[in-house]
Design a protein around this nucleic acid. Structure first.
Lengths: 357, 357
DNA sequence: ATGAAAGCGCTAACAC
DNA sequence: GTGTTAGCGCTTTCAT
């Protein structure tokens, strides 16, 4: 195991010796240069240069206790939605002269726990996390120890944790209503594990929209649980569905995110060419940048990724240790494109009234 | 400025007091549990639980000097190519029980410098960086101070810095030769700043391929310098080109990455619909996941992103402080799709002989 | 098996 | 203006 012992680096003591001053003076040059006589300051700076001295941030932080680093734990760094969120976070943080360190949990609770601990040990001032598992207890524990925590893309189950999220039930309902209005009476939902709250909520929204229409969700909605929420996962799942259907694949598919939808399209094209692809109505989620650029432009539920990140960082920065938690909820929006509009199908209008939830 | 003073957390001393033992024993429970009598160990563990004590990683590292954190500074976290690289890094690191902290420089030298320093101060064992500016001197300085550095996606200009890269000149040549074989005698290259080595090299490769064909690069190759290397940048640049051309847009376009190519397609479609879009031959770079899924499937130069990240992390972990630098160079590969094959154009075969460089 | 004490590199009083 | 010194939270000899 290639652990490493940091080699000996120059320290304030070395610099002090080299410059013929005391460590206190070196520290002053570093932190309050104006209090040091120009001549000595010059000597110290020369010594710093000479030894290529870089202050040890750990020691400094250990002593001074001031920090400007924020950690973020995202679900999947390869999902453009999350990188867009990260960008929003960075924008806000940079404006406040803080810096962001990123990690990707891949919905693996062990990884999430590891990064949680790592960031806490590294002494971040706060943590932005998109929780994969439902268990927020470790997060509350971290917060109790003085690390500011903001939940991202997850309405906080425990109200003492601040959060920024999108109304996922509304989003699911938006997507379902769209397909129902187009006349579909059987909806296949390619979902993720219900331990991810977004997944559970979107399903709920879908079922509610169906019920609102006077239909029986148990009959109308078929849920398929994927384990990997990316193009590969969508591809495999759709492949199985087509195989199992004896040539009659689902007519209308809802996907828990756009990556999965891309996979669905890939599978359809592979198995039945453009003919098959254009015969199934498909709705994605997130409205990632390239959704409109696809061979089959993707109808999708838009979430304001950038704003979400920005706002989350905002909450984190604004929040003093003892203050009450805040919750920001954005509303999703349906963007209709070709993928849901099968040629020859009646079209009843794309929009929709306001959501139930 | 919402800097923060870390609130008081439980320390080993607190735990020791609570358990009625000495700090040394607490430390032993933490690091060498087997040397502690079961009874006392239980008491200490209870106290840890009680106080919800989390060891301060900074202090630990300060004292012990062992670290398992690696930092990576990428150019653009929104570019799927880089996130794929990051994934490769993580895979390798996780296998070695190390953890990755990510940052995105956005080709801003100031940001790059900031993160460089931040990571060094936080005491990472090593740094993987995709350098934006050409100046590697700061990186060499960091390395001299004992932080292992591996350059990513950039053949090291200074040979004492290990590196993992792809032969970018070869990649540029591959793309150019493809278009030349299709009969184009005017190539427009949407490039980035030459301070990014990849950009300079790809241009060089393109020019060499043109020269090899007995043509004059100065006549054949037109370079357009973008500042933002994403879809937005490509869109704007192509828009300008079409505007300026008086209705005769470039026939053959090379893009410095796939995101730019997506932008190009977007602009073409907006300005002249599918007709215009299918009239210009376009080649991207990176072969990102969705390249094949686009409305106009993208011909692209493939780089083995995942392997690159994996290999880079490998180098970092393997490298002892004093050992000589290593350089790994991957070869790119051309993936031909519809975007470069304008209907009605003669096609001379897609492949190509081995590159010049 | 456990405790006492030194020290990692730095900052912040406080003295001179 | 500059030096001295205590101590941040932890690990690690070295005694006991």
């Amino acid at each position: 195991m290639p652990r490493a012992t940091t080699p000996r680096r120059a320290s304030v003591a070395d610099v002090a010796r080299q410059a013929g001053v005391s460590v206190g003076t070196v520290s002053n040059v570093l932190n309050r240069p104006e209090t040091v006589a120009p001549a000595t300051r010059a000597r110290v700076e020369a010594a710093i240069e000479e030894l290529s001295f870089v202050p040890n941030g750990l020691a400094r932080q250990l002593r001074a206790g001031t920090i400007t680093t924020v950690g973020a734990i995202l679900l999947d760094i390869r999902n453009p939605f999350f990188t867009e969120v990260a960008r929003g976070i960075e924008d806000r943080l940079t404006a406040a002269d803080h810096t962001l360190m990123l990690a990707s949990s891949d919905d693996d609770p062990a990884r999430e726990a590891r990064y949680l601990r790592l960031f806490e040990e590294k002494g971040v001032v706060g943590l932005l996390v998109v929780p994969g598992s439902l268990d927020v207890e470790p997060l509350r524990a971290v917060q109790r120890r003085g690390v500011r925590v903001v939940l991202l893309d997850a309405a906080s189950s425990s109200p003492d944790l601040s959060s920024v999220s999108v109304d996922d039930a509304a989003g699911g309902a938006l997507a379902a209503r769209h397909l129902l209005e187009l006349g579909y009476r059987r909806l296949t939902f390619l979902n993720g594990p219900h331990t991810i709250r977004q997944c559970a909520d979107r399903l709920r929204g879908i079922r509610e929209a169906v019920a609102d229409e006077g239909l029986d969700p148990d009959v109308v909605v078929e849920e398929v649980r994927l384990t990997s929420l990316d193009a590969g996962g969508g591809d495999v799942a759709m492949g199985r569905l087509v195989d199992a259907s004896g040539g009659r694949p689902p007519e209308a598919v809802l996907c828990v995110n756009d990556l999965v939808a891309v996979g669905v399209q890939r599978a359809l094209r592979r198995l039945g060419g453009t003919a098959l692809l254009s015969r199934v109505a498909c709705v994605g989620y997130d409205d990632i940048d390239i959704a409109s650029e696809l061979a089959m432009p993707l109808t999708s539920v838009r979430q304001p990724a950038l704003e979400m990140g920005y706002r989350a960082a905002d909450l984190l920065l604004a929040r003093g240790p003892g203050e009450p938690a805040e919750h920001v909820v954005f509303q999703p929006e349906l963007v209709v494109r070709a993928s849901s509009l099968v040629p020859g199908r009646a079209r009843a209008g794309a929009g929709g009234s306001s959501p139930t939830s």
